[in-house]
């Protein structure tokens, strides 16, 4: 299998007269986690929205599992196996935890209602906190619990690929750590993920490969391990600040998180 699960070619998009993406290419191979990094206004979130189908592409293509979905509606893409953890989590506050999960499984329930119970049990097993709070309105959950709910809501439909938009934004550091554990566990399941993240350390520890976006153009794309430190710093606009610091972060990534993920994987029944 040579083709990537998600293939983006020459994507251009923007709002009104303003071009935000100037021809972006991106591959997300099956079973890999790809992180998109860049400064504010680099077009990261817009790229994710175009892939989701919420913002129309001006030109270029988005292929999911070999099928061109550039012109299809967001809900159709979800039926084809895309799932989302939107920016700011966006749980449905007036619905209960379980109702949120049911909405997340909308496509699955229409396809095969019997699998829903099984998936629901799996999500509750992965996130026991959610099971405790299944009857509570989502608005009453803490930030970390909402993050879990958002991830669970994406996983319940048994997706091929999960698109995650700024998961760590607006969360307290301790919650970010919990969340990292959750996402590493999900990653260890072999799930394909596309991640947009401002917190570079957080993002690099989750991703197998990185895509650096600057002003709507891809300036680096490839393995995180071979990422040129100096260049990363320059492109992210932090210049010479980086030095050896990030190398440490990357070095740690290749060993320690793997162990962590294996530990967490015990609580996630594999699919």
């Amino acid at each position: 299998m040579s083709a990537a699960l998600l293939e983006v070619r020459g994507l251009r998009a923007g709002f009104g007269a303003q071009t935000i993406l100037h021809g972006v290419d991106l591959d997300v191979p099956e079973g890999k986690v790809v992180g998109i990094f860049g400064l504010n206004g680099a077009g990261k979130s817009v790229l994710l929205k175009v892939i989701a189908g919420v913002v129309p592409a001006w030109s270029g293509s988005v292929c999911l599992a070999g099928e061109d979905v550039t012109r299809t509606s967001p809900e159709r893409r979800v039926q084809r196996g895309m799932a989302h953890v939107p920016q700011g989590r966006q749980v449905f506050g007036s619905l209960t935890v379980e109702q949120n999960l049911r909405v997340g499984a909308y496509a699955l329930r229409r396809r095969d209602k019997s699998r829903y119970d099984e998936r629901l049990a799996q999500v509750y097993e992965t996130f026991p906190k959610l099971a405790e709070r299944r009857r509570q309105p989502a608005v009453t959950l803490s930030g970390g619990e909402q993050a879990m709910l958002a991830v669970g809501r994406a996983l319940i439909g048994d997706p091929k690929i999960v698109l995650i938009d700024e998961p760590s934004a607006g969360l307290a550091p301790s919650v970010v750590e919990d969340l990292l554990g959750v996402l590493l566990a999900v990653r260890s399941l072999g799930l394909t993920m596309l991640l947009v993240e401002q917190n570079i350390r957080f993002g690099l520890r989750l991703s197998d490969s990185a895509c650096l976006l600057q002003r709507g153009r891809v300036v680096y794309s490839g393995d995180t391990a071979s990422l040129d430190q100096e260049r990363l710093g320059t492109y992210l606009g932090v210049g010479r600040l980086l030095a050896d610091d990030l190398t440490k972060g990357l070095g740690a990534k290749s060993t320690q998180p793997r162990r962590a993920s294996r530990r967490k994987a015990a609580t996630v029944s594999s699919t």
């Binding site: 989701a52 919420v54 509606s73 967001p74 809900e75 979800v78 039926q79 989302h84 939107p86 966006q90 449905f92 506050g93 007036s94 619905l95 109702q99 949120n100 049911r102 909405v103 997340g104 909308y106 496509a107 809501r153 439909g157």
Partner: peptide, 18 residues
């Protein structure tokens, strides 16, 4: 439920496949 979710947040609801 999809109608309610959409009322809460139409874009997020659409991203859930409703």
């Amino acid at each position: 439920l999809a109608v309610q979710a959409s009322a809460d947040d139409p874009v997020a609801a659409q991203l859930m496949g409703t």
